[in-house]
Design a protein around this nucleic acid. Structure first.
Length: 425
RNA sequence: GUGGCCGUAGCUCAGUAGGUAGAGCAUCGGAUUGUGGCUCCGAAGGGCGCGGGUUCGAGUCCCGUCGGUCACCCCA
């Protein structure tokens, strides 16, 4: 037994893995479903580095000098003494690329998707990892509420396609600058009056970002918030119209959702629409995917003053929240060789089948026949092809249908044509 | 970073009042020297996370430490 272990908060994906996120066939399944949908929705892939200058994330994650600590980023200095950080989320990199490569020159909106690892230095728990994978999209260059509808429907479609169970999509509108200017002072004043009933974290947030108090899981705080002023009562005309349009679109498309006044999201750049898809199949970390609109972010980072919206969805959480489907690795043909001289001919036939798109494998253990059949069975092979001394002498092979047990002798002296035919049924 | 729980074969776990480790599954072989999924037989595999202490003697008690897990923080 080795002393080496994967780093805390990480996991491996490997054949035979027990947890959903450890199973390679489930990853393939989710990625394939997502990519199919991205094609259908006309999103193109964007791939950016897993590390960036730390200040890029600080800029997008909110104010405060302790931002690195607060957001639990993995940071390091490169040889040029630049402070770098492993990306904690996908949006900043994608937006940076949009600006850096002037994607504003393309037809707007530019619709991007990414699939890749994100990092956060925090303690592991169910559905939370230090390195996790997000499938996400960013639709940049427009503030049209129908784009919000498309993005939310895409998130929902992906979750449906991979089988996320017991899902509810929550939607809220955090308003624009005008809305915040009207609402935040009211909320802060209200919280101030109940200071004594709040948890310490919420008290300190009262000054920096009172909206975030809604995220608190503290009972006393939540009790206070029940009676708190609601942002929905303070929405500007523009925000109100926007929300109405989003709701109308979701209803027209039949996307089930609920309005949640207390949904504020952790990232400070969100404006207007925010949304979160939760699953009852998860533990405390029940958000499978979430996102929102960020109309000030692109210009803040030096780009044009255009809007954007996106979501990130955790693949590990999708897998945990999906029905644990028994996607058995299945093989078309497994070769059983009963003589050392049969191995080379078997490999040639395996190659011929593979070229035809028929998956095939053979025993590499030099084991007995029983063991080879057992392996054929375990790999889920539809057919076992037997190549022994008799077959070699005759120039044929025996094809066994593993389900029915029926056997057929097929000539292979002149190539694999007949064999291909026999196992194509 | 903080707190609760946990740490015995590859996996799931048992282990009685402390006496020097056991089961099921999986693996490999055989019953069946040309045939899988069932059954039977057998083999291999750990010294109980690590370190220290108490004791004649410790998976079994105590301390520390590391790791895992769940929750808080944060967030997918």
């Amino acid at each position: 037994m080795t002393d080496y272990r994967g780093p805390r908060g990480t996991y491996d994906v490997f054949p035979g893995g027990g947890e959903p996120q450890e199973r390679p066939e489930l990853w393939t399944f989710v990625e394939d479903r997502a990519r199919e949908l991205f094609g259908l929705y006309n999103y193109s892939e964007v791939s950016t580095p897993v590390f960036e200058e730390a200040r890029l994330f600080a800029r997008t994650a909110g104010e405060g000098s302790d931002i690195v600590v607060q957001k639990e980023m993995f940071t390091f200095l490169d040889k040029g003494e630049r402070e770098m950080a492993l990306r904690p989320e996908g949006t900043p990199g994608a937006v940076r690329a949009y600006i850096e490569h002037n994607l504003y020159r393309l037809a707007q909106p530019v619709k991007l998707f990414y699939i890749g690892p994100m990092f956060r230095q925090e303690r592991q728990q169910r559905g939370r990892y230090r390195q996790h994978t997000q499938i996400g999209v960013e639709a940049l260059g427009t503030s049209d509420p129908l784009v919000d509808v498309e993005v939310i429907s895409l998130l929902y479609a992906i979750h449906q396609a991979v089988g996320v169970k017991d899902e509810v999509v929550y939607v809220n509108n955090l308003g624009d600058m005008e809305t915040r200017q009207a609402y935040v002072p009211e909320l802060r004043a209200y919280l101030e009056r109940h200071r004594g009933e709040l948890d310490p974290d919420s008290v300190s947030r009262m000054d920096t970002n009172p909206l975030r108090t809604f995220d608190s899981k503290h009972e006393g705080t939540q009790a206070v918030l029940v009676e708190a002023p609601k942002i929905s009562d303070y929405l500007s005309e523009e925000a109100s119209v926007h929300l109405k349009a989003v709701r109308g679109g979701l209803e027209a498309l039949g996307i089930p959702y609920e309005i949640d006044d207390g949904l504020v999201r952790g990232l400070d750049y969100y404006t207007m629409t925010v949304f979160e898809a939760k699953s009852g199949a998860l533990g405390a970390q029940d958000t499978v995917g979430a996102g929102g609109r960020y109309n000030g972010l692109i210009s803040d980072l030096g780009g044009p003053d255009v809007g954007g919206i996106g979501f990130g969805s955790g693949v590990e959480r999708m897998l945990l929240a999906a029905a644990s489907q028994e996607a058995l690795a299945s093989l078309d043909v497994f070769f059983v060789t009963l003589a050392p001289e049969a191995r080379i001919p078997a490999m040639k036939l395996v190659g011929a089948l593979r070229e035809e798109g028929i998956s095939a494998d053979l025993d590499y253990g030099g084991r007995g026949m029983r063991a080879q059949f057992k392996q054929a069975d375990r790999t889920g092979a539809s057919y076992a092809v037997i190549l022994g001394e008799d077959e070699l002498a005759r120039g044929d092979c025996t094809v066994r249908d593993m389900a029915s047990g029926e056997e057929l002798v097929v000539p292979v002296a002149d190539g694999a044509k007949d064999l291909i035919w026999a196992v194509s049924g």
